[in-house]
């Protein structure tokens, strides 16, 4: 019983790792196309290790948005990881010395698995670390292969790599729009459309990178609006 459970967890962890490793290929390629070198790209996958923030950082840099705007955008996108670690901490109940290590592996995939297998603390831990490590290793291998591949190209625009960037963001956004209740999905889709529209309209007005940051205000506004409506006690 326990063995088959473990095998299931390991298999799931491996397949999630393989899937994310495959899209690390596109991260590596896009990062090189945005003007980072091999080691800068690899440093992001080794130390930042949170996909959406990595894509955003290189995307903003590639679009000429400047360092500060790129960092702030990456941090805003990474803020959800704080929420993950906050909710994981009572589930995993880790000893202090494991916390710095677990923190680095706290991402969408490992958090999802820890909550999916929550029948006991040990099973949750196994799901979390197996997924985190599998993704970490394959994400870094994928990044290296992708950036080595892209380094061989003379003009990334020729291969449509500049279009791979918005497609990648759309693919990262997609599961957040379709995986909840129909009512919640509709809310998410409307926030997404309004944010995209706001950013689009601000392109000619603000410096590159800033329209994306400005769109964060849509999230702030929506959370206050719906917060009041949904929780009468406030």
């Amino acid at each position: 019983m326990n063995n088959s459970k473990n095998r299931e967890i390991h298999l799931n962890a491996l397949s999630i790792g393989l899937a994310t490793g495959a899209y690390a290929l596109s991260f590596g390629a896009i990062s090189i196309a945005s003007g980072l070198d091999f080691w800068q790209t690899q440093t992001l996958s080794l130390f930042m290790f949170t996909g959406a923030s990595q894509f955003a950082l290189v995307g903003v840099i590639g679009a000429g948005g400047g360092a500060l705007v790129a960092v702030v955008t990456a941090l805003l996108l990474g803020a959800r990881n704080s929420l993950y670690s906050l909710s994981l901490s009572p589930v995993l109940q880790l000893r202090r010395r494991y916390v710095p290590f677990a923190a680095q592996l706290t991402i969408d995939e490992s958090t999802g698995m820890a909550f999916k297998y929550n029948s006991s603390r040990n099973i949750s831990r196994r799901a979390f670390f197996a997924t985190g490590l599998s993704v970490y290793i394959l994400w870094n291998i994928g990044t290296a292969l992708g950036s080595l591949g892209a380094s061989q190209l003379s003009d990334p625009g020729m291969l449509g790599l500049d279009a791979a960037i918005p497609a990648g963001f759309l693919a990262l956004l997609w599961p957040r729009l379709v995986n909840s209740s129909p009512r919640e999905n509709r809310k998410m889709i409307s926030v997404a459309i309004v944010s995209a529209l706001v950013a689009f309209l601000l392109i000619p007005i603000l410096r590159p990178g800033l329209p994306v940051l400005a769109s964060a205000l849509v999230a702030v506004g929506a959370s206050f609006m719906w917060g009041k409506k949904d929780t009468p006690c406030g």
Binding site: S82, S195, A219
Partner: peptide, 25 residues
């Protein structure tokens, strides 16, 4: 609520900007 909505806003805005922007045009 806010941490749930932030990625949606930012990713959607990134889609728009990376599809349509060339510098500030």
């Amino acid at each position: 609520r806010m941490t749930g909505l932030l990625p949606v806003s930012l990713l959607a805005a990134l889609v728009a900007v990376q599809t349509f922007a060339v510098d500030d045009a």
